[in-house]
Every structure is written in C-alpha cells, then in structure tokens.
C-alpha cells in the first residue's frame, strides 16, 4: 500500500501545482473592480489550491481504506503508449503538408504494427490494404460526399 500512498501524494502535488500556475496566470489579468473578468478565475484558482492541499492531507491519512482499481494483473506497457503518442503527434504535424490520403495511410499502417498484440504476427500486406482502403474511403466520403475539405497535400484528388 506504500506505493498507493505515494501515488496519491503525487496527485496532490500535481493538483496544487495546477492551482498555483493558474493563480499566477490570473494575477496577470487586468483588473477593473472587485467583480470583473478576473474574479471567477481567482475563485477557481483558490479552489484548485485548496483541493490540492486537501488531497495532500488525505494522501497522508487515508492509508489502505481505498481499493486501488489500477492494480490489476497486467502491468502498463508505457513503451507502446509513447510510440502511439509519437505517431499521433507526427500525424497531426505532417497532415497539412503531406496531405490526408498519404499521411493517414502511413499513420494507420504504422499504428496497426505498434498495437499488434505480442501473441499475433504482424500482417504487413493486410495492414497496408486496410490502411489504403480506410483512408481512401474516409477521404472521398468527406471531401466529396460531405464537402469537408480535408487537406489534399501532394496528391490533389
């Protein structure tokens, strides 16, 4: 239960941190009177800080009464999470220049590979086929069916 306690403490620190950052940003707002555009942000900032402090206190006192829902059998696979995030960032960053069709196909293909369960083989051909079909279908459905101008990029179809 020691790790649970530590986790709750970290959450409290993050909560308090968020409150302080917001308080600092609020103090930079122009003031015009007691109740102005900065009034509600001040109230919110103080509430965040207060909740952060309460969480810190609670993390010290509530030891093992709460059952940790996260502590199930399989440990979290953070390598896959980071790879997935990296792919999403790349996808968003290059979408406009490369264009929806090419970028989506590439993203889907790589993301399928990253997420394939360890017990299964990576099927390159079928992944590629699914990626091409899915991105083409979405592109034409939205661009031509629903007039949603997805970025065309290099391929202007």
């Amino acid at each position: 239960m020691e790790s649970h306690k530590k986790k709750e403490l970290v959450i409290g620190v993050v909560m308090l941190g968020a409150g302080l950052v917001y308080l600092f940003m609020t103090m930079n707002l122009p003031r015009k009177g007691f109740v102005d555009a900065a009034f509600v942000p001040y109230v919110l900032a103080f509430m965040l800080c207060l909740l952060g402090i309460l969480q810190l206190i609670a993390s010290r006192t509530t030891a093992s009464s709460e059952i940790d829902a996260e502590s199930d059998s399989t440990p979290a696979d953070y390598a896959t999470v980071l790879k997935t995030l990296g792919l999403i960032v790349l996808y968003a960053a290059l979408l406009k220049t490369v264009g929806f069709l090419l970028m989506t196909t590439l993203y889907l293909y790589l993301q399928f590979i990253v997420l394939t369960p360890a017990s299964q083989r990576v099927k390159h051909v079928s992944y590629l086929v699914i990626a091409v079909i899915a991105s083409t279908a979405i592109y034409f459905l939205f661009r031509h069916g629903f007039d949603l101008m997805l970025p065309a990029g290099f391929l202007d179809l």
């Binding site: 968003a92 979408l95 993203y107 889907l108 399928f112 997420l115 699914i130 979405i138």
Partner: peptide
C-alpha cells in the same frame, strides 16, 4: 474485429471530426 485495427481508424475519424469543425489543424 481486433482492437489494434479498430482503434487507429477511430482515431483518424476523431481527427477528421475535429478538423471539420472549422478546418484548422
């Protein structure tokens, strides 16, 4: 249908939906 196929496609559709709101990256 396996999740590793389904979820990436869902992510792409989320991106399309977000972009479609006002055509901004």
């Amino acid at each position: 249908v396996p999740k590793h196929i389904l979820l990436p496609i869902i992510l792409v559709l989320c991106v399309v939906g977000a972009f479609g709101l006002s055509s901004r990256i």
